[in-house]
Nucleic acid binder design. Structure first.
Lengths: 166, 166
DNA sequence: TTAGTATTGATATAACATAACATTTTTTAC
DNA sequence: GTAAAAAATGTTATGTTATATCAATACTAA
């Protein structure tokens, strides 16, 4: 096996989730204040909804939740909020699922990679350092200038693997 | 820069495209014969349509082309043919574009990676060897078992970069 | 306070994808 | 060679994801 150092994974481990959500929202509050971004009720609540789950959620699923709370009821409401959150790095889009997930390392610019469990649907985010992977090397070699990368792996998470064994 | 060996890229270079298409179709013919797959008119023509372009094409775009030739006219026709071609490794799906592109290295199982030009829409495929990248390492470390990877980069291809400069 | 800008509300529609079932074609077994 | 089975295609309908457009409201700064 290759011994190059790997990045930590968030999502497949126990943690105090209530606290984790609160902390992330607070960080978003601070970031928006600092950068003079309008962190409106819909936007903040949309982030909250995504934070409350380690699953990726579709836009219409988010919209259902917003409806329950009388915040918007039509697709553009959800898509706009999600767009804001994406732009500012609070969430990521999972292309394979046409879905969105709260960022596990907000604040810092990074090239996220995702591990998607096809059994339970949980999504873990791993930070992959740019320029270290085969893709970047291939791009550089051919003169292609990368602006954004999508790196997603689908398979079985540790928990689901164990359940099959036992 | 990292000097690890990178993989060759097809797509951003000049070549005799007519011959390239013919060769790929012939290879598909042979593969299907060998594996007793039914390479029907619709399936073969669908592959031909994708081969004729280094752009990714949406299913409905492919369907339009099939319509012109009196091969099917309804979405399932295109999606079924694309499904067959995907299953057998003749084409790949580009998640970021909801589109399909002919495989550049058919025949061998591989983990494809794509370089997508956001200016001209061309798509280049690079074969990334499994287990060599940060993603596989992260997965292995956390006990996640990868079954399929999606690796896509969006940016500017060499040709489009040059056009901006000049 | 008013002019400009950003956000939200609402309607409509575009773009992508599949379920379900009928019909036709091909393969296989006899 | 023909009947039964399997695979592929034809067709209708609908489900899912996403955006364009314009009107109304709220916030910001001069």
């Amino acid at each position: 096996m290759n011994k190059q150092k790997a990045q930590p994974v968030v999502g497949f481990s126990q943690h105090d989730h209530r606290r984790c959500v609160k902390k992330a929202l607070k960080e978003a509050d601070d970031y928006c204040e600092l950068n003079q971004l309008r962190f409106t009720v819909v936007r903040r609540r949309t982030l909250g909804i995504l934070l409350e789950s380690h699953m990726a959620m579709g836009a219409y699923e988010v919209l259902e939740r917003l409806k329950l709370e009388e915040l918007g009821s039509k697709p553009p409401i959800a898509y706009r909020a999600l767009g804001f959150l994406l732009e500012n790095g609070f969430i990521h889009r999972i292309e394979r699922l046409n879905a969105f997930v709260a960022c596990s390392h907000p604040g810092s610019t990074h090239h996220p990679a995702f591990l998607i469990c096809s059994d339970c649907g949980s999504v873990a985010e791993a930070a992959v350092s740019p320029n270290s992977d085969a893709l970047s090397q291939t791009a550089e070699q051919s003169g292609f200038q990368i602006e954004h990368t999508t790196i997603e792996a689908e398979g079985q998470c540790p928990d689901c693997l164990q359940q099959v064994e036992s």
